[in-house]
Design a protein around this nucleic acid. Structure first.
Lengths: 212, 212, 212, 212
DNA sequence: TATGAATGAGTTTTCATTCAT
DNA sequence: AATGAATGAAAACTCATTCAT
């Protein structure tokens, strides 16, 4: 009976879709709560409440609080990456590309402070450290690639791109944290300009070459 | 009977000294454990075990786990400050002063990774955030003062010392964390030189002025 | 879909009823255990065990051991009051009313020795003293009202009803305690008669007035 | 060497005397503290502090907190008994003897509220109950003996001295507690008169006999 | 599938008792 | 004998996880 089989599989597909939606809702709630309270101080029930479901339901979608945390971090990383790619795709020119990459990340953190905290503050406890380290390394690699493109295009020179990429990341983190902790009053755009200037100041390429 | 009185007060003094030593031992143990596991994940008993005493003994010296944490942070701050003052006192010259300040801090963190974690990673959980923010602001102020001295001495110029001081702190934090997380292989000395170069590259004072 | 709505509210109602039952079971268990061991010597787990539930379950229904104690006392007071009202409603005549009030209370304590201990023995510890004092004052007021009714009806006279009411309460307490402590062998009925006689012996109204 | 032996035994005797004094100081302190806070809420250290000695010293004189409590109660009983005998010895006449006995006890409780609480409030927890019961029975026996003396002297009659003695005790307890709990404002003397009147009102001996 | 009541292991803290000085 | 620092068993309370409905 193909009809039945097909109807079954349709139902299965539909259920899978629903399940994915529910999973997403839980992760969104978890991001908010973990970001606000930290991993240990967050109770499973807090996440459930924030997601508008019952405590027990969490365990239909995840094995443990730990698993929810892991999935939350993974999704946040994927999301940020997508956001970055979406915005930097159409931009051209080294300097502009750099500024845009910085600004997008700074804006992303400004709008998603929970995710920032989740990745870079909460996640610093012993058992989540590797996940965070991986995330940082990926960000640094991005900046390094960007700088390398500048070098390849003859618009930039620096004898230690590796370190400059890390430094760039450090400045982004610092600016983001100060905004979150309300320790300054600049906006993401200003910060991006400042950090761009800072990076460009490390250019060892003789400016004279620009003359004709 | 002065002999008795003096012997009594001698005993009292000795006990007070022992008590201070014990307090210090607990704080040292607490720094290690909090630094490794974070505040929430650290059990009072872990600290006791690390200090080689029984659980109950902790409470002879501190009122609560929270109080132990607070005291641990305070002591770490005092210690770092003393270290900084001890090393920078004899150095002269803006550039050399900057490099020394950076190197001392980088070395201190390298040798006291637990304290770094305690102050800048662990302490970022909700209820300890203010303590950490205060600590960061103090560090930034130090760098700003140092830069201002350079400006006053006519050796440096920059239109936003505030932001440059923050940036310097960001770079120190980044370098320290990477060493702790084993994400690079530079040593504190190299890092200090690199960060000094970064900062000096922001100098807007015309080098030509030095001629003549 | 009214069916669903009604079924939902039915479930809610059912759960609330179950919750009330559970609360009652805990209070019953608590009365027994507090009465036997006293407040301090009773561990939360004892109450849970007596109620046939787990330690943690207590805290789904009450905020603290202290709260359980308070609720236990309140319920006991309400219960005794209801019992008294139920039995004395239909009785008429001063002497008969007095005897009935005494007997009901004596029987209640005989059948609810835990509650007696809870209210009048356990509750005498420092921090629960006020609750007990209030309870005693209420009982004394009841007896005073009863005696005043006798005076108003011209069947009794006494120049200090206040003190006589307290004395009546003292005798009831004494008789109850001796029964609980097995220090005598009278039954509540005999005790009630005896105390009634005792009180009536304080009558200062000339019996001669009854003549004619 | 008898001299040595005698000097040794003298020292032993002296030490025993000192030890007894110290024991007494501890019991005095313990009475105060137990009476104020109850058995469970009293910490060994509270007693030591009240006695002006160190915590550990308690255990040179007593085996446990429990033992201190027991000894405290025993001593209080002995003390009260001595007080009663001292005051009632010289009084003659049934009515006067009764009044004196009551007044002495009421005054004793007024001046020694801690001991009252210790014996009749604190001591009502499970494990101390027998001690309290014994104490109450002894008091009742005293009153019964006193009343029997009145009967033997032809000054009083009552068909149930046993119960009347208990009732007397109940009234004394009630009056004492109200004074301690500040629930009334009579003084011991008034209370003694009132209770005496109460008791005498139970006299079944024909008053006509008093006529000549 | 969803629920939320129930569980009990695990956490902080207290305090009677011990014991080295 | 006296001390008081140290101990660790025990208590109140929390919360991740399970499971009957």
């Amino acid at each position: 009976m193909p009809a039945v089989a097909s109807s079954l599989s349709a139902r299965v597909r539909r259920n899978e879709a629903l399940s994915e939606i529910r999973t997403g809702e839980i992760l969104t709630a978890a991001t908010r709560v973990f970001g606000r309270k930290g991993y240990e101080a967050t109770r499973a029930e807090d996440i459930a409440a924030a997601a508008g479901i019952a405590k027990g339901t969490l365990y239909l979608y995840f094995d443990s609080k730990e698993a929810i945390y892991s999935a939350t971090v993974s999704r946040a990383c994927r999301e940020l990456r997508a956001e970055l790619e979406r915005h930097t795709a159409q931009v051209t020119g080294f300097q502009e590309k750099l500024r845009t990459a910085l600004q997008v990340r700074l804006e992303y953190w400004t709008e998603n402070q929970s995710i920032y905290r989740l990745l870079l503050t909460v996640g610093r406890e012993q058992k989540h450290r590797r996940q965070t380290a991986d995330f940082l390394r990926a960000a640094q690699r991005d900046y390094k690639t960007l700088l390398q493109d500048g070098v390849d295009a003859g618009e930039f020179a620096c004898d230690d791109l590796e370190q400059l990429a890390w430094a760039t990341l450090d400045l982004v983190r610092g600016a983001s944290e100060r905004r979150i902790d309300k320790l300054g009053e600049s906006d993401p755009r200003q910060d991006a300009l400042r950090i761009t200037a800072f990076v460009l100041a490390q250019n060892t390429r003789r400016p004279s070459s620009r003359k004709r």
